[in-house]
Design a protein around this nucleic acid. Sequence first.
DNA 1: CGTGCTCTGTACACTAGCGCGCAGACGACC
DNA 2: GGTCGTCTGCGCGCTAGTGTACAGAGCACG
Lengths: 235, 235
Amino acid sequence: MQLTKRGPRANRLLAGLPHKDLQHLLASCESIDLTFAEVVSLSGDRIRHVYFPTGSIISMVAPVDGYAGLEVGMVGNEGMFGVGLLLGVDVSPLHALVQGAGPALRIHAKRFRRELAENPALRRGLNRYLYVLMSQLAQTAACTRFHLVEARLARWLSMTRDRVRSDEFYLTQEFLSHMLGVRRVGVTKAASSLQERKLIAYTRGMITVLDRSALEAAACGCYLADKTTYARNLG
Amino acid sequence: MQLTKRGPRANRLLAGLPHKDLQHLLASCESIDLTFAEVVSLSGDRIRHVYFPTGSIISMVAPVDGYAGLEVGMVGNEGMFGVGLLLGVDVSPLHALVQGAGPALRIHAKRFRRELAENPALRRGLNRYLYVLMSQLAQTAACTRFHLVEARLARWLSMTRDRVRSDEFYLTQEFLSHMLGVRRVGVTKAASSLQERKLIAYTRGMITVLDRSALEAAACGCYLADKTTYARNLG
DNA sequence: CGTGCTCTGTACACTAGCGCGCAGACGACC
DNA sequence: GGTCGTCTGCGCGCTAGTGTACAGAGCACG
């Protein structure tokens, strides 16, 4: 893992903090490694830690009775997990699981609340992030309803690529099918198509993005919309 | 319109405030009437006013290029429109339009921010509401993906019924089709089915709920899930 | 080197919902 | 009372995605 994926500055929310505030916050943080498919938190659980991924990705999955759930948000080095605490609620309404293995910083919920109370810059930044996250939720809802699996897959891969900052990452079609809320077969078809078009290549879970900009073009507008929202509010 | 739909206490967020805080806030509020299909705000617009519906309903619609959009949140007397301001952002990422005509209280964005700064009880309550709203967004995303139109319609009508606190309300199938993100014909089929089952009756936009609890039972679990989340956090 | 597991690809019958177009029904308004 | 606009219902061909089941392919590990 490169250095750029491990230091606190690798997380864009933390990178935006004034030096002194950051140092103060870091004193309460511990550096950890998240492993693929690890469950960070289940819907309804108390949030024990807040996570700032630096090189990892956490998926937020809405549970639905009788189904495996649906991913509604993706948190990488541009965000954090545990936003409920910003609003005074220490229970996550969503499942959170590790979609991309890698390093992250985490901080105990209690200390995080204290930091929050003492640190207006942190509060301001995270509030804005929460706004972006809400926009993403809404966008995803609409996207899931209207767009075809292939475009959604392209969006999803592009988002992942941005967050791991690498053209290669590990993801089985089975996993993807849960994220997108479709059958594995649906992913196979869409992925085959993207591979035929030379946008990606994959074998046994290792996915390689061959043509980034073409992949982004194959994605639905939601990809760009998300990016724009982020840039406007946190850029 | 009954008195219970007009006074400030008709809005559950306001009703939860200490008397003194409420009085202070009300000094900045004006009482207005929202008319059916009125556009409160478009995606990307500056938020000029925050709305507390007392007898009206505002729909939050996520725009999608090439489609009429998809409703992702419903705000009635249990909520407010303009949550972005809580997070320091004065632009709405979503369209907001009036789904149920009726009275509401509103307050200028600027004054609202000042109130917010001065009034911790208000902040606390609204933060919790924001949390509930986020949960609703996620729930709706999953619901829209997995559940059949008939169950979604039943959910939607039940939610509306709760918010207008009346078994009769005006809504055309055309409008409903936009909210649910399906064709009008899809609504016709689902609504016919519910009517055959004696759960509702309707003619030319006037919908009557005949059997509330059966309608709620016909809805997907998302209806109950939303209610539970609200009760747990604001009840 | 073979065995077993995981990952990927394919086939088949089925269904919910789409797009479009049209027809009836009710109400409002001149 | 006739006309027009709005609301509701239906038919028809079509498509994306479903559920299930099975087969090949690559890797790991004994």
